[in-house]
Amino acid sequence: MADWKTPDNVKYTENDEWIRVDGDTAKIGLTDYAQDQLSDIVFVDLSEVEVGSTVTKGEAFATVESVKAASDVYAPASGKVTAINTALEDTPEIINSDPYGDGWLIEIKLSNPAELNDLLDAAAYAKHCAARSA
């Protein structure tokens, strides 16, 4: 049975996104569980967002593709996009190798930090992953 990394310094959605707050910005990415389910990631479509545009909690802002699947990525919180991980254009596989680090997708300036309150912590998310793989 696979064992997925669920670091404590991020918050999670049930849809397998993570968000890590750093000052008034936050980075968003896909979890280790998500990258493992997708397997080799070959393409990340971030064309729907640009620096300065806004994302809304619960709305899809990107699509991540492997050979066999495509998965929409939903914003865990709302805010204005401050950075996009352009490295993913040529090396989407860094989501596989470093999902919580270099494999981040976008950085936003949170418009409503209270939205983070209903996200999952590491323990709850780990349980959520385990339940699905049973």
Binding site: E65, S66, V67, K68, A69, A70, D72
Partner: peptide, 12 residues
């Protein structure tokens, strides 16, 4: 580019 196709992407 298979994930564009109906058998994977379904209603999307």
């Amino acid at each position: 580019l298979r994930p564009r196709e109906q058998d994977i992407r379904r209603e999307k």
